[in-house]
Amino acid sequence: MTPKIRTARTLRTSREKKRSEEIMPSPFVTNGTVVYGSYRLKEVICNDRSPCCRLVELYAKMGLHRYNLLKGENYQFVCVQKYHYRLILAPSTYFITVVATDPSTSLPQTFHIRIEEDRHAAFILKCNISRIQGEFNKFDGGLCYPGNMPEWPTEDPFDNGKRFYVLNDSELQDNEWIRLYLELAVTKHLSTQMDPDLSELKIVNAAIDIQVLNEGLNAINATVYISYKDSCEARVGKDVDRIAIVRRNFDERTGCFTLMGMHQSSETIPKKGANQSEAGVGKDVDNIRRSYSKHTSCQETGFECRKNVQES
């Protein structure tokens, strides 16, 4: 993907847009349809009679993940109370009011979260607002430039201890954001579904670039590889063994937190063989990645997933 060039003109226009948004009615505290800049925002109330769709719940969890990552907290998602979104078919923006709890106190908190889709049917998401209601956060409200899509590795990330760290079972359980990343990748990459069936996803392994491990698994900037099985025949056919790649990035200057990635068949990942020796795996990361090619498009369906006949 060609990176966006930030010229003086585009930066000036972006700053003017941000200033104009600051004096508009906040969608977080306004009821009903809101005129926000040059577009209208529709309000959706979520309750037991009208549950929130899966996509917006995933967006809410992404916003909480940003807050926890930056603040060192562990707030857990409870529910979406309401959200506003742009009434357009193109990439939309969501203003979400979320209830979450701190496990140490069990007290509920109301969060305001903004998620912006960068393009249609693609896993490129930007979050520049995630805060407790009434709280001031110096990182909130900045401009977002997502950067480049991650590229597929040239070797198996789950069989190379020099480049990648493979998480153990307890680490997979303790880091719930790995499941979130997988569900976002499956929901957004080449898909426009609002309520996908994600019940057939099973994580097998997860690995992270070893270059960021000095900051721990919760490094602000990281690339994560997730090996998983997807038994949803309507989505992947018989190709149940999959791999997802997700890059997270945080720009301290703008406060923009981005998640982007994709998924494909695990058969496309090279395995270590006679033509791949240990001597070659220690090269610099930037020199051994290759550009990703077009991947098999997913099949859209409104029906529930059907399990494949053969399961492991």
Rank of each mutant, 00 (worst) to 15 (best):
K82E: 06
G141F: 03
N128K: 01
A122P: 01
E117I: 00
C79E: 14
T110Q: 13
C144D: 00
F139E: 15
D118W: 12
T97K: 08
R86V: 12
S104I: 05
K126V: 01
P146K: 00
Y83S: 04
L89K: 09
I124P: 00
R131K: 14
K126G: 05
H112L: 05
G134L: 08
L107S: 10
D118R: 06
E117D: 08
I113M: 04
T93D: 13
I96Y: 04
C127L: 04
N137T: 12
A100P: 13
E117C: 01
V99K: 09
E116M: 13
S130R: 05
I129N: 08
G134M: 11
P103R: 03
E117K: 04
G134S: 11
I124L: 02
L87F: 05
R86W: 06
I132L: 15
H112F: 10
I132W: 02
A122F: 04
A121L: 05
V78L: 08
L125Q: 11
H120A: 05
H84K: 03
G134Y: 07
Y94V: 12
P146G: 04
I129Q: 11
E117H: 02
I96K: 00
C144H: 03
L143V: 14
C79G: 04
S106T: 13
F95Y: 15
D140R: 00
H112D: 13
E116A: 15
S104P: 06
C127V: 07
E116P: 00
F111R: 11
P91Y: 08
S106Q: 13
N128V: 01
F77K: 08
H84I: 10
P103E: 15
L107Y: 09
Y94W: 09
S92W: 02
T101L: 08
G134A: 03
E135G: 03
L87H: 07
C127E: 09
F95A: 07
G142P: 00
T93G: 03
V98M: 06
E116C: 11
C127A: 14
C144G: 02
G134K: 05
G142N: 00
A121R: 14
L125V: 07
F123E: 13
P108N: 14
L107H: 12
N137K: 09
A100G: 06
D102Q: 07
Y85C: 12
P146N: 00
F77Q: 14
F77A: 06
P108D: 09
E117N: 03
Y85I: 10
T105D: 13
R114N: 09
S130C: 02
I113G: 01
G134F: 06
P91C: 09
Q133N: 08
P91T: 08
A121Q: 13
K82G: 02
H84W: 05
V78M: 12
A100H: 11
D102P: 08
Q109W: 09
R119M: 15
